[in-house]
Design a protein around this nucleic acid. Structure first.
Lengths: 202, 202
DNA sequence: TCAGACATGTAAGTCGTTACATGATTCA
DNA sequence: TGAATCATGTAACGACTTACATGTCTGA
């Protein structure tokens, strides 16, 4: 028992700043998609349970006569629980790579089939890499200039919160570093593909 | 709908050779743990459903008065379903890296906390890398000599099946390549850790 | 005016993990 | 004789996905 990844992910995002369920979903989709995912079916019930446990509070936001919107704010207790979780040892993620499985199982078939699988993987990963590299370029320039790129800016200050230039620069730096992790991982996969094609006598 | 990863994983392993649920679990744990996992709670019901769907047959194995043991054999229809699945495009795995999440969320805390997280990741990954490298060494020697390493040999010919020297050498090669994938991935992560520590001013 | 984004939520179903239950055989 | 391994299975729970349902507001 006791995993509840969604719970801590949501709590952690709230530790950043107050947000609605919709905001959380968008932030994850736009900014964290290379290492995290969430869906509404998990987010809304989780927010509800956070309130029940006293880790967050909910209040309706009706600034400038906007539509119905519930903003969740982390409580002091929530902050504590979040920090405790962060300090806990992180279990290594269970690995389940479908392509590796297929490749492994392809050994009873003609080599052409194994080669086809690798080439598919290769072009798929290349697309993701191109995308990541574009994001990286934008972010790098932002870090250099001490600014936040526009798309992120919208996401990261939906709510009014005083942030020092320094804390935002740090956010940006860490954002960039997580992206680098994704890029490195894909590069390694692409190098592996080349290695495989060579080894199978392409 | 329609994912059923366990179903195709089990079917694919049976396409290799007839096995019992216990064999499958062991093979996955010992040999494929760097890219796959399964547990009994999924394996046994899956085997049952494969039989129901006519993709495998079950028969009791009582060779040499051994204990109760059910061996599952893939049917012709099963082979076809397996091959169809292999040919289907492989969706990229959903990513959920808890350490990346923690690292990202640590940006509102002192930098020492971010550093601690990375160091934890680093030593964890290093252990796995050492382990993989040991396996690689054994496998490389086996490939060079055209042999199968002992541990694998037991697993891979539990059942009597005529295999040419060539097909076994290919199995071994592909086995080695999947291991290389795991090694590359970890190396990339460790390089990233170094990059991060440097960037955070260690 | 109408498409698209904003916004919240539920229901049903699948998938996956963990813990438990049971018992046979082997080997030191 | 007792621990380890072989071997099969189930029940309960928890996690996750998908599809659906509903309605508002903004801007071209």
């Amino acid at each position: 028992m006791a995993k509840q990844k969604t719970k801590f992910a949501v709590l952690g995002l709230l530790s950043w700043k107050p947000m609605s369920g919709y905001d959380i979903k968008k932030l994850v989709d736009v900014g964290l998609s290379h290492f995290w995912n969430e869906n509404y079916g998990q987010i809304y019930p989780t927010l509800e349970s956070l309130v029940k446990e006293g880790l967050a509070t909910r209040k309706e936001d009706r600034t400038s006569s906007k539509r119905k919107r519930f903003v969740y704010t982390i409580t002091r207790k929530g902050q504590q629980v979040f920090r405790d979780w962060l300090a806990e040892p992180t279990g290594s993620p269970i690995v389940r790579n479908e392509l590796q499985l297929k490749f492994f199982l392809s050994c009873s078939l003609p080599t052409t089939e194994s080669v086809r699988l690798i080439k598919e993987y290769q072009s798929q990963q290349q697309l993701v890499l191109d995308d990541h590299r574009r994001s990286e370029k934008v972010l790098r320039e932002a870090v250099r200039d001490g600014l936040f790129p526009k798309e992120l800016d919208e996401l990261l200050r939906i709510t009014s919160q005083k942030q020092t230039r320094q804390s935002r620069s740090k956010q940006c730096k860490i954002f960039l570093l997580t992206l680098r992790h994704g890029i490195r991982a894909i590069e390694a996969r692409l190098e592996w593909c080349a290695e495989v094609l060579k080894s199978l006598g392409k």
